[in-house]
Design a binder for these strands. Sequence first.
DNA 1: TTATGTTGATGAAGCGCTTCACCAATGAGA
DNA 2: TCTCATTGGTGAAGCGCTTCATCAACATAA
Lengths: 340, 340
Amino acid sequence: MAKRIGIHDVAEAAGVSVTTASYVLNQKANTRIGADTAARVLEAAKKLSYEPNLSARTLASRQSKLIGVIIPMIGAGRQVMFSNPFYGDFLSAAEYTARENGYHLLISGTATDQNYSSVVKTRQLDGIIVVGAYPGDAIEEIKKTGIPIVLVDCYIEDPYFHKIGINDRHCGYLATRYLLEQGHRRIALVCGEPSGGGVMEQRYRGYQDALQEAGIAHDSRLMYAGAVDYSFGEQTAAELLRRGNGETAAFVTSDITALGLLNGMREQGKSVPEDLSIIGFDDVSLSWMCVPKLTTVHQNISEKGSLAAQVVVDAIHGGEKRDVMLPVHVVERASVRKIK
Amino acid sequence: MAKRIGIHDVAEAAGVSVTTASYVLNQKANTRIGADTAARVLEAAKKLSYEPNLSARTLASRQSKLIGVIIPMIGAGRQVMFSNPFYGDFLSAAEYTARENGYHLLISGTATDQNYSSVVKTRQLDGIIVVGAYPGDAIEEIKKTGIPIVLVDCYIEDPYFHKIGINDRHCGYLATRYLLEQGHRRIALVCGEPSGGGVMEQRYRGYQDALQEAGIAHDSRLMYAGAVDYSFGEQTAAELLRRGNGETAAFVTSDITALGLLNGMREQGKSVPEDLSIIGFDDVSLSWMCVPKLTTVHQNISEKGSLAAQVVVDAIHGGEKRDVMLPVHVVERASVRKIK
DNA sequence: TTATGTTGATGAAGCGCTTCACCAATGAGA
DNA sequence: TCTCATTGGTGAAGCGCTTCATCAACATAA
């Protein structure tokens, strides 16, 4: 383990003071350093392959260059954190963009919404990204620390937060209208808990909007609410057949659940889209990893992740309040059939 | 943003010196502090809801309580980092165990094997977990930093590294033997690049072992080597039918690829397991998220992730060299049929 | 009595970096 | 000539914590 080389060594090698080296290395603005001096420092740093000690930097500057990510709905224990591939894609993109901006991501693994504010403090997080929080969650606690917070897919009214999301209500409307356009009249809604002010509630409303527009009375017997996972979709297949309400199509508010429903139907001896048309939501990779490929509401998950990182970085640098709505569209594949 | 309270405040509140507070808070051994004094400090810390500043701690103690994770095969750009759900499960478990031990995980998102040693230095990582590295990778660089390194699913002969894995060769043998036991004779092998000394090579060998044991000559025309992803499996379905070598079964060395093959076959108008039996590898959640459910070689991914974290933590604390082989077994589901 | 431990607690020196306040030198303006 | 900016650069004080060396007080052994 070679002797760790510090800024002191760089300064010495370049024949300048530590202060000067620090200024150059940090490309500080409003600080007058001659071009040639700067070049000398940079060269020395490169030659010694100097790597700054971030702990020291953080301590002195009060900036950790670390961004926290909270995903409240992740499972307990050491179970499936990314059961929904949405998060994998999201995080991957966020990580990339954060890194490009000189930040690292600290991902909260367990249901740590409670004690996450402790991490914020101990690790001196510069900013934080929260995905899918419901009103009433413990974000308020973090808010107290005063760092920028970006809410993704959250419907929390508070000007303090930056926001990124899609128009979930409109999405629900689009998906349902698409089904209607294909001639369907009895349309099931399979979704996560549609209460509590989250995205599910919005998508549910959109579903109602479309039905209403088409002059179809809302029939609560066509609603199947439960978890946002594969199993619920699978169970719903059985339940749907048991109830026998004659649905010809289903709007499922997440691809993972849609996949469960699709496979569940097949296990029940039914086929998709012949016996039931299905439209999903998210357009995760899973949606084309099945037969038939899933028709779904596409949202650009990578873009969302990347933007979340960008917004939080900008906010850290004093950027203004952001509130972004990303575009979506229905992508037609093979799980919906047209009926005359 | 309330004034940040430090160890100084705790010490003051407890009426002791900062040193004493520090000793108590860190539960330092070999340090004589009276029980009542310790209690006072702890109480003060709790009352003030003191959270240590990890940067300061890291700087002073040279321990970051941060563990790096490198996954070399992740994609470029902001694309799919966790395209293979294996990683999600693995990381989730590793994160949990690390956290339980007072460590956080720093996950490398892009193909940073090159510059990762820079992260090791700048963030002062205490240890590192490397998944699926091939010999010749830039781990040597990191090795120079002297921190404990745990290699997961790697076949690199070097006593410096701790190792966790499964007996991939035996796994390949088990999977193939299972197929043989079900009466199959012409068995395709669909795998990632079986060269370069990685797990794929081992599984390939196991496949050969089983064939040899059964007195079946190895037929290279039954081999399909390519990427470890869904698309390759899908393509292989077409290729397999094109070649027309009469395989009745396939051993696919990863579930994600197996799923691609399974769905690909269906798209080609064939059915599984009637026209082709498939056995996968890993037993990721995807393997039961399909119809028919996938027969596969089960490995406990969560256990692997958890153990990786535990081993690196132990190593940081001076634990001895570990070299663990986790057990595996074939889990029978519905993608393999018995032929007489 | 003195020497020797033992227990409980502390002062102060950093860890490697940032940043404020300040300084020396030079040029411009009057 | 003197003053006042401007440019280029530096000294030193921390950031909040750990940890080494040291100490006071008291008990025990000789």
